[in-house]
């Protein structure tokens, strides 16, 4: 078994999908010769050719708009948006076309398009390179939205997203790309794509996270354990649809929940999750569901981003407030 990074996991996953289905195409800015600015598509153009790994003009709406046409012709485009903050020029095509064509056609036309977006902060980047736009897509009917948090999930989830007949916004925690390695056993059967997962069991509080915050949540649970607090951590993995059955089961057990994400708290995923937990687990709750996330400001200059991003201490602060309620 090989130890791989998230970047390698995604790369291997896309490669596998391209080997399995000749209709799978990769499109985006710098995805070809360069292999993407994060090297996620490294080597793919060399092996699959320029017709299947397409360096596009620098126009995000153009990438998504042409992907729609290719999907109508029977292809399965995997579009890379170079950075989260650059997805907005494509927003109209994603929201008004990609998301709605299946509905508009009463199911006659499918849109098997994957939009890969490196998201989240913590890499010391300039403006527009560190955002977390997931709620805007999860709010859009017709799209499915998932976020991977580790190399093994990256390998499986990207293949499952490409195989899905619906458009999938695929969020990749960019600061994890070349960070932690994990062992990939390709012989195992992956968990279905649109499901969440309990990644650490506990009994005092349920901590929910996805993407880059899963690592922070795990570290927080570890730290809390040294103080005798038992935290259950769930990696949500799928943001639309949400898979909350495991979350409800957990909250009914612990009576407390904290949701953590890098995105702004106002109208973020945490708000939806908190609302659903309250509806489903009202009589089990010992305290209000709390949210930890980015403040309701634009993403700050990078020298202060570590203060802005919810870290272990801010997560533990919310955990403490919940336990003390």
């Amino acid at each position: 078994m090989a130890k791989i990074t998230l970047a390698k996991g995604l790369n291997a996953g896309i490669r596998k999908a391209m080997e399995n289905d000749p209709k799978v195409l990769v499109m985006g800015e710098d995805v070809g010769k360069l292999g993407g600015v994060f090297r996620i598509t490294d080597g793919l153009q060399k092996d699959f050719g320029e017709d299947r790994v397409i360096d596009s003009p620098l126009a995000e709406s153009g990438i998504l708009g042409t992907a729609v046409g290719m999907a109508m012709r029977g292809y399965r485009p995997v579009c890379e948006i170079q950075f989260d903050g650059f997805v907005y020029p494509a927003y109209d095509q994603i929201v008004s076309q990609v998301a709605k064509i299946h509905f508009r056609s009463q199911g006659k036309v499918t849109m098997p398009i994957v939009v890969r977006i490196p998201f989240g902060g913590g890499i010391g980047a300039v403006e527009h390179h560190s955002e977390s736009p997931e709620a805007q897509f999860a709010h859009t009917p017709g799209l499915k939205v998932v976020a991977c948090s580790n190399p093994v999930d990256g390998y499986w989830m990207i293949q499952q997203a490409i195989a899905c007949d619906d458009p999938v916004i695929f969020l990749e925690p960019k600061r994890q790309y070349h960070a932690d390695k994990a062992e990939l056993d390709e012989s195992t059967t992956p968990q279905p794509l649109f499901t969440s997962r309990v990644v650490r069991e506990g009994s005092d509080l349920t901590l929910l996270a996805y993407g880059p915050m899963v690592k922070t949540a795990m570290a927080s649970a570890e730290a809390a354990a040294t103080e005798g607090k038992s935290i259950e951590v769930i990696d949500l993995r799928t943001l639309s649809p949400l898979d909350l059955a495991p979350v409800f089961a957990s909250v009914r057990k612990t009576g407390r929940a904290v949701v953590a994400h890098e995105a702004h708290v106002n109208l973020g995923m945490g708000a939806e999750v908190a609302s659903r937990i309250t509806e489903a687990c009202f009589y089990s709750l010992e305290s209000p569901v709390l949210r930890v996330g980015g403040f309701d400001t634009p993403y700050p200059p990078s020298r202060i981003e570590e203060q802005w991003l919810p870290d272990l201490d801010r997560v533990l602060d919310a955990v403490d407030r919940s336990l003390a309620f």
Binding site: G62, L64, G65, T66, A67, G69, M70, A71, M72, R73
Partner: peptide, 9 residues
């Protein structure tokens, strides 16, 4: 754009 993508197909 859809037309152009279809043509690329």
């Amino acid at each position: 754009l859809h037309a152009t993508g279809y043509a690329m197909g």
